[in-house]
Amino acid sequence: MIEYPFLRKGATIGITAPSSGVKPALHPMLRGACERIEKKGYKVVCGETVWTQEKAKSAHAKKRANEWMDMMQNEKIDLIIPPWGGELSIEILEELDFAKINKKWILGYSDTSVLLLAITLNTGIATAHGTNFVDIRGEYVDETTAMWETVLSTQPGAAVIQYSSRKYQKEWQHDNPSPCVFHLTEETYWKTITNRPVNLQGRLLGGCIDVIRHLIGTPYGRVRDFRQTHLNGEPIIWYLENCELSTTDLRRSLVQMKLAGWFDHCSGILFGRSAANKPIDGYTAEDVYQDLAQELQIPIVYDIDCGHVPPQITFINGALAEVKVNNGKGIVIQHFKP
């Protein structure tokens, strides 16, 4: 069974950097995010790691892990959100004590998804793939991103519905700040391999494929054990997003996941929009999706609201989901079923 945390009003949010911290030049941005979220009625507690960054990490692995575990075990902290992702959160996995991880929400994406997936697979506690902390520092938040609060405040046993965004951000414009952080200019259109409507049901698992693929073959990536221990025979819906992989690297990663059994008893796969997906010798991301759909004989949806081309839906690892896609629009209903 799956256990779901609950975000209460006036909760305390812990900010720690299990991957990358924030360099001094960007500290005002982090402080702005803290001020903005406190105006919403939350209390914010920042760890030491969020203020430091050197050699592609916020601190050495033990310090990052210790601060993470301290926040996990601190009963006054209700939710943990890293400032953003990074590169090397995988280093702290062997330093964590999964038996002492308490039931509280963890929210984030990118490199954070390594921790999200590992924690859900190894504990059965639901985790939240969605916005990073610095991305909610704006004067206002777009309606898709803003759903993180509603989703995390859903009672166990209840359901929450989210819709595909109206527009998405084509590229980051850090030199042109926006009141809502994102520059949402492009029309969102969810696509299916068959160009026909899709209706999926299953338990959600996923994250940034660049990094979660490295859990394969480790004690932290036992998808088959998780399926047998925590699911009630329900299939899995994978949601995946590509940060930096070429199409051939994406293909290799998906084949590895298939060979490792991650796609066994899978009802469908959702792929987020990507600014990567660089074609190799004419081999495009659409070709990758077509090949995978033919091999697995399952529906595949792509260009959804997930990952490094914002905004993004808040996906709950472990939740029982219904995903409906028709004429470019998507609906995601998540049931917080044990």
Rank of each mutant, 00 (worst) to 15 (best):
E67L: 08
V332Q: 04
A285H: 01
T144F: 01
D135A: 09
G10Y: 09
L121V: 04
P219M: 10
I81T: 02
L121P: 03
D291A: 11
E143V: 09
I300N: 03
L259C: 15
A118R: 02
Q312G: 12
H183W: 10
I37E: 09
D135I: 03
G41S: 07
K9M: 11
I193T: 09
E241T: 11
P310I: 01
F6Y: 15
V22L: 06
I304A: 07
Y239I: 02
C46N: 09
G130S: 12
Y140K: 10
T185K: 14
D70W: 15
E286P: 10
T284K: 08
R31G: 07
F6E: 11
K57E: 13
A285E: 01
L30E: 00
I81F: 03
V44H: 05
N277T: 07
N242E: 08
L215R: 01
E234Q: 12
H183T: 08
T131V: 12
G202N: 02
I77R: 01
T248F: 09
E94G: 13
E241K: 05
M29T: 13
K63T: 12
N242T: 00
I193R: 11
L205Y: 01
Q201L: 10
R273A: 06
E322I: 07
E38Y: 08
T284V: 02
E54N: 15
E75P: 14
Y189S: 13
I333F: 11
E186Q: 11
T218A: 07
S110E: 06
A61V: 08
G86V: 01
A11Q: 07
D291E: 11
M147W: 04
E295G: 14
Q53H: 15
A276D: 06
L121T: 02
R213I: 02
K9S: 13
K40H: 15
M257W: 10
A159T: 09
C243P: 04
N277D: 13
I161A: 12
V288I: 07
K103I: 10
K55Q: 10
G124A: 06
T131K: 05
I106W: 04
R252M: 15
T127G: 05
V323T: 02
E187W: 12
V325M: 03
I193D: 06
D249H: 10
I136D: 00
S20K: 06
L204W: 00
L26E: 14
L96G: 04
T49A: 08
K329L: 09
Q297F: 12
D225W: 15
Q53I: 00
K324C: 10
V22T: 09
L152I: 01
V181S: 08
R8W: 14
K170D: 11
C180W: 12
P177I: 02
T49L: 08
I316F: 06
Q294S: 15
S89F: 00
G268L: 01
A126E: 04
V301R: 01
